[in-house]
Design a protein around this nucleic acid. Structure first.
Lengths: 191, 191
DNA sequence: TAGGTAAGTGGAGCAACTCTCCACTTACAG
DNA sequence: CTGTAAGTGGAGAGTTGCTCCACTTACCTA
């Protein structure tokens, strides 16, 4: 969409330093770490940081871009699988798994996905496509939107973060969302 | 649990002023408003506010206590109704409805419910009881805990907040979680 | 009714944060 | 080599959350 003018060599170098430092420090101290600290850790001035990444979400999105791009590509390859519900479940589980990599990232997920980073665009696009496929196959309620999926991923990430044992809990909560709370009435088992 | 010593008359009066101001200002500006502003609006010093409510969650919980207490009492009266699923659905809907009263409260719901306020204790207790009843009747997944319900309520509150038209959307999302995302296999319609 | 005292008060002040602005520096095209 | 547009860093303004403590006051006791 926006093809920004190419960066000068020194600027590009600083950008890389910032991203490397952000990755480090977000992993270690969570996504709410102060911008000053990121700048100091990267060895650049605070002004430089803000010039390149005007908001925290921009920085988070950039730091996540590769991760999200790889995730989206992986899901794209599975998009044509036989069972669209199972692919959708995997998508949700993975999205949460990536979200909880940085502690405190969950609350920003919705905003970050809208920043327009390559990885975020790809993640959104493939998610919408998986949902559409499942909907077309009549396997998913017609009134379910992609925003609902993001909402669910956010909530699960939030609880997983502030609770203890993670991976099993993610699968469990995704399953609650997929299968519902109520027990299915015992009918003829359809495939 | 903790039966704190009774407050002096002036302290009690200030506490009431703070709660009234908090209610006002949370309604108008959301749950993230600054503590300074709450104190100013209440006409007390910031020190007084912090002495009485050491954390924002404590203040939120206190401001919500009456609301939650009334809600819990209402649900308690319906606990013996014939259909435990329908009561549980109502519980979820109401919990969300109360949560979205203050914009930005959703993310704190889990923490606030654990603060030990009378209303919060009652709300938790009645929710656990409704869930237990539904579980005993085999109408709800056996692996579903109260924390999961809170997680669901958080998720719904989050999307409702940032979306538009509210009450229908709440009912819709609650239904998504109650019945699941997947379309039911077309079988003989069980009641 | 007075007086001692523990409880309560308010706000100055500190530390930490976000973000802007601009005087200086530097890469690079011509 | 040089002009200049792009880039830099950090001082500083404006907000917060929260503490601390010199003062004030309600309430018990005699």
């Amino acid at each position: 969409m926006t093809d920004d003018p190419p960066l000068r060599a020194d600027a590009r170098h600083n950008r890389d330093k910032i991203l490397a430092a952000a990755e480090d420090i977000f992993l270690e101290r969570g996504a709410a770490v102060s911008m000053n600290e990121v700048a100091r850790h990267a060895g650049v001035g605070i002004g430089t940081l803000y010039r390149r990444f005007p908001t925290r979400e921009d920085l988070l999105a950039a730091a996540y871009s590769d991760r999200f791009a790889a995730f989206a590509e992986g899901m794209r390859l599975r998009a044509e699988e036989a069972d669209p519900l199972s692919v959708l479940r995997t998508y949700l589980e993975e999205l949460v798994r990536h979200t909880v990599v940085y502690r405190g990232f969950a609350t920003s997920l919705g905003i970050v996905l809208k920043t327009g980073t390559a990885g975020c665009i790809a993640t959104t696009a493939v998610g919408q496509r998986l949902l559409q496929t499942a909907r077309d196959a009549g396997r998913v309620r017609a009134d379910l939107g992609f925003d609902d999926l993001v909402c669910v991923a956010t909530a699960i990430s939030l609880t997983v973060e502030q609770g203890e044992g993670a991976p099993a809990r993610i699968a469990h909560l995704v399953s609650v969302f997929m299968e519902g709370i109520a027990v299915r009435p015992p009918g003829p088992a359809a495939s």
